[in-house]
């Protein structure tokens, strides 16, 4: 059974190009040009993944995410203009899984959709203590050990917590705010400086060149992403 993707986009040309690109890769697509129709489509066609443009004419994109999240855990990929960082961050914090910035290429789009599709096939509730792997990086939560290329590397407790959280959410964009409240608790405020410093320390241990990270990449102005491939 092929994966069904809902495209919510008010611009007809973008809608048709996205639809074409996805069909080309053997995905099934349904589309909607406004939020009301999108919510209707979710009920009627029960899609697996949603691609949501945040600039819809009839409803705030965040509101759409909130409504969808009331009943569904389907991966949501938001699309927005480049100068709307805050909108993106808010959408991710509302429960969106990933984002694309206009204009995006078909290659970028397909990469994001593949990540979302892979997460669909995985069993949603993973046992807490199972080992996590991303390419040559492996983490063993039971023994609290981390391996890179089969060799054990020594992380501080905070670095370990950070890496574990990133690996659990591999492929997803995590906002700085989400990581901070996971690591330090939600009462800690928005002290990105500590996170930045912690991340720099972790990168020096897991990346060949912290200036060209291969595992955890920075989405400037948004957050971080553990790259799966």
């Amino acid at each position: 059974m092929s994966i069904k993707i809902l495209i919510v986009e008010d611009d007809a040309q973008i809608r048709s190009f996205v639809s074409y690109a996805l069909t080309n890769e053997h995905y099934e697509t349904v589309s909607a040009d406004c939020a009301a129709r999108a919510l209707q489509q979710i009920e009627d066609a029960s899609p697996d993944i949603m691609i949501l443009d945040l600039g819809l004419p009839d409803m705030d994109g965040k509101e759409v995410i909130r409504k969808v999240r009331e009943s569904s855990l389907m991966p949501i990929l938001v699309v927005s203009a480049r100068d709307r960082e805050n909108e993106k961050v808010a959408a991710l914090d509302m429960g969106a899984d990933d984002y694309l910035t206009k204009p995006f290429s078909a290659t970028e789009l397909m990469a994001r959709v593949r990540v979302a599709a892979r997460h669909l096939s995985q069993t949603p509730a993973k046992p807490e203590m199972s080992r996590l792997c991303v390419r040559s990086l492996m983490i063993d939560p039971e023994k609290r050990l981390t391996y890179l290329n089969g060799e054990e590397i020594h992380l501080t407790p905070m670095e370990y917590q950070l890496l574990l959280f990133m690996m659990k959410n591999a492929g997803k964009v995590l906002t700085s705010g989400a990581i901070i409240s996971e690591l330090w608790g939600s009462g800690y405020g928005n002290d990105t400086q500590s996170l930045r410093a912690l991340m720099a320390g972790l990168r020096r241990k897991i990346e060949k060149n912290p200036g060209k990270p291969e595992y955890i990449v920075t989405e400037i102005g948004v957050g971080y992403r553990m790259k799966e491939e």
């Binding site: 611009d11 040309q13 973008i14 048709s16 190009f17 996205v18 074409y20 690109a21 080309n24 203009a81 206009k102 204009p103 995006f104 290429s105 078909a106 290659t107 789009l109």
Partner: peptide
């Protein structure tokens, strides 16, 4: 802003066309 939206369509469509 207005130019940006059709550009997304043009860039994406020409890429698909190329493929």
């Amino acid at each position: 802003h207005d130019i940006r939206t059709p550009l997304t369509g043009i860039i994406g469509t020409s890429e698909m066309l190329r493929s």
